[in-house]
Amino acid sequence: MRIFGHKPTITAWVGIVIVVGFILIGIFAPWIAPYPEDQTFDEVGSYASPSAAFWFGTDQIGRDLLSRVIYGARMTIGIAFVTTILSFAIGIVMGLWAVVGGKIVDQILSRIVDVMLSIPLLIFALIILSLFGSLFTSVLGSLTVLVFVIAVLDSTRVFRLSRSVAMNIVVLEYVEAARLRGEGTWWIIRREILPNALPPMISEFGLRFCFNFLFVAALSFLGLGVQPPLADWGGMVKENAKALAVGGIGPLWPAAAIALMTIGVNLIVDWILSINARPSGASAEM
């Protein structure tokens, strides 16, 4: 089978199976999950061990962990994907514009980013979400605000990378040739630089995707991320962390889900990179 004209490697298939599997689980969560995500089972109690009725056991207030992991897929993957894509769109466009747009544009954008980077990400997110969160939430909904805030903050990291990658490309002669030809800024960004800057950006995508997972988790823990009773993997790890102290294995299930998803994404990214590293036909006529 071929995807976009390329045959996936075995490791790529593993990644595709994992990622597609989780996405399907997320989409069909209400049909797959044995129980609703917010139903508590007082008769079983909290931190119950796995059993026939509760395969993964129960969480800190007696909800079924398996169901919550399944519902969590929807929330976690959805938010992480959307924020990462958004942050890359913002970061790449700004980064390339800084490189091509001249010294003044570069200075302004870079200094704004420096200011944003100098404030710890989590604190910055906390301030923005607590100051403006409620204001916009009424209009846009809490998840949209969350996604947007994380994406903008995360895009500063993407900006730095795309700017430095593009710096090395913009001095190459084919870009100068385009300038000599009289091409405009947007054409140079889109056609000359972007295609050549993509490979390192794709590998960064895998990494940032995982960071965003954890960032959402951290915000959830502080009460500003995904709001209870909605389930998300990162939040579940935090909620159930105490189970380890009493001999339970509760937090390991969502943690394993995070790890598995991360590995899956990176396997696919590796494969895309290997295609990109050697444009088709590179070995012809050697």
Partner: peptide, 27 residues
């Protein structure tokens, strides 16, 4: 360069030393 018009740009062309970097590898 930025003050020259399209016709002036067109009439003078340039060929680089290193063909490897003078052609965009993704076009």
């Amino acid at each position: 360069l930025k003050d020259r018009n399209k016709d002036e740009l067109r009439r003078i062309q340039f060929i680089y030393q290193q063909p490897d970097v003078a052609l965009n590898p993704r076009q």
